[in-house]
Structure formats: structure tokens, C-alpha cells
Simulated scan of single mutants.
Amino acid sequence: MKPALKSVLAVLCLSAANAWSAPITFNTALPVHEGGWVLREQLVVMKAGGDSTPARRDMEATGLVSVLGYGVTPDFALFGMLPWFDKRLDMRMGGQHLTRRKAGVGDLTVLGRYTVYQRDAPGRTLRIAPFLGVKAPTGEDDARDHLGRLPPAVQAGSGSWDVLGGAVLTWQTLEFEIDSQVSYKVNREARGFEAGNVAALDASLQYRLLPRSLGAGVPAFLYGVLEANLVHAARDRVGGADDPNSGGTILFLTPGLQYVTRKWIVEAAVQLPVIQHLHGTALESDYVLTVGFRMNF
């Protein structure tokens, strides 16, 4: 799978007890109140291409990602994430155009997040929260078509039990919020294939555009969002050997918008690659589009 899609789906942004602005492409350290729930739905569309080989591969993937979180204590929250995928690989083989495609439920990720540091002041808060999770192989990973078994990138699931972890820092004020996250995902082998481990460093600025001044009874806010996502994926391994045409490093700049009310948020962002250093003939990322909402109850 492309580093872009790995990064987007590894850890999604998870909202707080009240609907404050928050990162779109990664986590936040703001809490889920004890006994409260947060639901998030995101539509993620990824396109990759730039294949210089005769195969002329083009990859498209659409994911509908459902996230449900629960506040166990004021400091500890649990989250479950289950995606549905529709993946399509177009290519040429023997002078013919071929399409290989798979749609279905992907792998379930469950993670816990704990606030280890909190400093509050009037109109602002600083929080640091590490997280740790596991991805279970709930998606199909042995789908086939008339050409045989589909490539791992087209499968709905990976077939492996994987581990992910990291930490996120959030600095929130009445006018803006800054978030930063470091994360790492360890992938394991299944059916002779092992996806490369993924490291990511993310940063986000959310700035209140409207209303410019706060007053009593303001029902909603419009935030402008600018994020940077640095993603490095190690080479995949096939049959115990490194695949020279996989992995690499991508830097994304991600502009977006959020419409925020007390209980729900509507948001959209597009990840645009500004630097790509990929190995061999690995497909280049064109863009990753994210549209979604989240609500608390």
C-alpha cells in the first residue's frame, strides 16, 4: 500500500468532549469526557500513478472509515477504527488494458490514548498524550480475479497482526490550536508478504477565521487548517527479500477547512505531495482527499 494511504488510515484524528477544532489527518490530545462517546466518519480518496514502466500502473483507493471512541476515565480513552475499501489498479499487460479491483471491509484497529501531562489556564490548555494500538486482520487478504491472487496493495486486508504507537501534543487557545504527533507502525508478515514499517511526523495549525471576535451566543466557528505530514515507509518484503520498488519518503502539505459547532464538526482537506523520494518504480502519490464529520454524544 502507498505510504500516503498507510499514514492516513493508521491513526485518524479523534475529537474531544466538546467539538473543538482539531487535526484532520492525525490525532489530537484533547480528551473524550468520562462515559462519553465520539463518532467519526471520513471518506478518503487516494490516487497514485507516475509509473514509468511498460505496465503504466494507476492506483485509486476509496475508503469509508468509521471511528468510535469512548472515554473510560478523564485521562484514558479507547478507540476502534474500521474501514471499508474500494481499490482499483489499472495497468497494461501484453498490450491490453487490465483492471484489478477489490471492495470490502478492511482491518480493525483498536487503540488506547492516555493523557500524561495537562496544564490549563484561562482560555488555553496544553496536553501530551501517548497512544498504543493493534491492527487485527479482519479484512480479506486472499481475494482473486481471473488473473489469480490480487496484489497486496489491492487486497482489502493485510492478513497480519500489526502494532502502532506514538504520542501527540496539543496547544489550544480561543483563537487557534497547534498539534504535533510522532507515530510508528510495525507491520508483520502474512502469506509471504510483509509491508514496510511506517514512521510519520505530523504538525497542524487550526486558526479561527469566523467569527473574528467572540461574543455571547456564537453558535459555530469556521477554522482554516494547514497541516504538514512527513511519512517514511520502509521497503516491503516478499518471500523474505526486500522489494526494491517499494517504500520511500513523502512530505505532504494539507490545507483544509472545518465548520465547528458544540457537538459536531464538518471538515475537508486535501493532502498534496511536495517532496517524494521513492524507491525504484514505486507509484507516486497524486493526492489524498478527505471529507468527513464527527459528533459527540
Rank of each mutant, 00 (worst) to 15 (best):
G63M: 14
K102H: 12
L98K: 10
G50K: 00
D75C: 15
V72A: 13
V105L: 11
A61F: 05
L43Y: 14
S52F: 08
V44F: 00
K102V: 07
F85R: 00
E60P: 05
G94I: 05
L89A: 11
K47Q: 11
V105G: 14
F76H: 09
K87G: 05
Q42H: 02
K102N: 11
A48G: 00
M81P: 12
R56M: 07
A55Q: 08
D51E: 10
S52W: 13
S52K: 06
V67H: 09
P83Y: 01
Q42W: 02
S66P: 06
H97V: 06
F76G: 14
F76E: 07
M91W: 13
D51K: 05
V72M: 15
R100W: 01
A103F: 06
G80H: 06
V67D: 09
A48E: 00
V72W: 03
Q42V: 07
L43M: 08
G69N: 09
R101C: 03
Q42L: 07
K87Y: 12
G94F: 12
A103M: 11
K87Q: 09
D90H: 13
F76V: 12
T53C: 10
G80D: 15
S66L: 12
V45T: 11
G63R: 10
E60C: 12
M46D: 15
F76N: 09
G50D: 00
M46V: 15
M93H: 12
T99H: 04
G71V: 05
V72I: 12
K87T: 13
P54W: 01
P83T: 03
G63S: 14
F85V: 03
R56T: 08
K47N: 13
A77R: 13
G80S: 11
V67R: 11
L89W: 02
S52Q: 14
R101L: 03
R92T: 03
